[in-house]
Design a protein around this nucleic acid. Structure first.
Lengths: 267, 267
DNA sequence: CGTTCGAAG
DNA sequence: CTTCTAACG
């Protein structure tokens, strides 16, 4: 059995002050992928940076206080890689991957974008460069006899079931037709070739959402978006026995605006 | 009996979240002078902006989130004036005055400065322009049969007894020889002609300090500065029966890095 | 609405 | 060390 969790922590220092450490101590996962760390390693308390029993890999952004991904693994990785080959995003704190026995796990933080801004152009450039990398990654790993799991905040809701208010958001960044079509390609067996493990295990239901705005009563009303995904190669997806979102019980115990997304694999 | 308090609130919104409102509800003062309000009127909750039983006058800075003085009076002022005639500081949120029967009260926030910077030059320009105004104010009010009380954060410790660590601070902004000499002139009977009411009532003691840095253990060690003054015309100073600093009992109940300074006048 | 930063104090 | 703003989300 192997268990992997991904969560956008929205500032690891703030999350650690609020309950992230307790959550981590309780998780049964073997790998935890973090996004929006928003700190350099040496800005983090040691117990947060290198929690007892974990190996940690950080890929901060060169822009202070922005983005930043990390991976925590119970076993030491066989290899670590930061970035995915596109120079523009080499030190953007948006992608890192580790090799474990028979498995490559990645932590991804796709730019969030905003319609009509340069940030949306950046998101599109990222998507354009990242899709061929995903295909290449799958092929390379297949040649090495590895499965692949790309976890993270993809900042796109794929289908109408993936956000509460899809009608109101048809022109919103994160649910644009071209973004949804891009995810179609990531999941297309003839293209990216990945499987959305949580959706595969919950084919019909609305959600389960993984992000709720801090504004208004979004969390209380479960007015969320499913934008955090575990995307697996088909062979790995077939081994998934469980896939779920850990929605906090109450607003009070939330330590991020995102919830952890976990997938459990059998042998 | 008439009682006037001055306090630098270091952000009225933050102070109001921490205990300012309770302090105000308990004060027996008739006039409260505030400095570093750091908000426009409409950024303040109504109960903070216009507390029940008070008239409020605000003089915000045109620079958002900076400076800002205010006066709260139990009786409606006969007149209100903002600024002291120097155009550079007209909307700097550093000076306002109100006329009450027989008394003009001002709230002053003198620039804080830092040696070797443009901010120190600004402080000096303020001082240069403000001293003649103080003299003029006293004379004008004398002609009207009014006493004057200029309260606020003057950002200068006058003498060695006015800060804990005077030796270490001989080259620090706030205790420079030229700044101390300027306060000498404010207090010189032949020049500004004002009386430092707290010092007049506590001629020998160290302090009482009115500001402690938030850094380190400054408050716990009473490593403070006396930079908040009530400067009175001599006739008014003669009527002072009490003058004191309300040092908070504990670090926990502080709602500003400054403490309220209060003077009580007899008939 | 919340997390950063940077300027200011 | 704390307050604010701005940018970002």
């Amino acid at each position: 059995m192997q268990q992997v969790t991904t969560v956008n922590v929205n500032g690891l220092r703030a999350a650690a002050r609020k309950g992230y450490a307790e959550w981590l101590a309780d998780t049964g996962s073997d790998v935890v992928c973090l996004q929006e760390v928003r700190a350099e390693q040496d800005q983090l308390p040691v117990a947060v940076r290198e929690p007892e029993g974990w190996h940690a890999v950080y890929a901060p952004s060169s822009a202070k206080g922005r983005a930043g991904v990390a991976l925590l693994t119970r076993r030491e990785p066989e290899a670590v890689r930061v970035g995915f080959g596109e120079p523009e995003f080499a030190d953007a704190g948006r992608y890192a991957e580790v090799d474990l026995p028979g498995l490559t796990v990645a932590s991804l933080y796709l730019p969030s974008g905003e319609v009509g801004t340069e940030r949306q152009d950046e998101k599109e450039r990222f998507m354009t460069a990242f899709l061929p990398y995903l295909t290449q990654l799958r092929q390379r790993c297949a040649a090495d006899g590895r499965e692949v799991l790309v976890c993270g905040d993809w900042n796109i809701a794929h289908r109408e079931a993936d956000l509460k208010n899809w009608r109101a958001n048809r022109r919103s960044a994160g649910f644009l037709p071209e973004e949804r079509a891009w995810l179609d390609r990531v999941l297309d067996p003839a293209d990216g070739g990945y499987v959305d493990v949580v959706r595969a295990h919950h084919p019909e239901q609305a959600g389960p959402y993984s992000w709720w705005s801090y504004r208004g009563r979004a969390f209380d009303n479960d007015s969320g978006w499913r934008i955090d995904y575990a995307m697996a190669t088909p062979g790995l997806a077939d081994r998934a026995v469980k896939a779920y979102v850990e929605r906090a019980a109450s607003h009070a115990e939330r330590w991020s605006d995102h919830a952890p997304v976990t997938v459990v694999f059998g042998p």
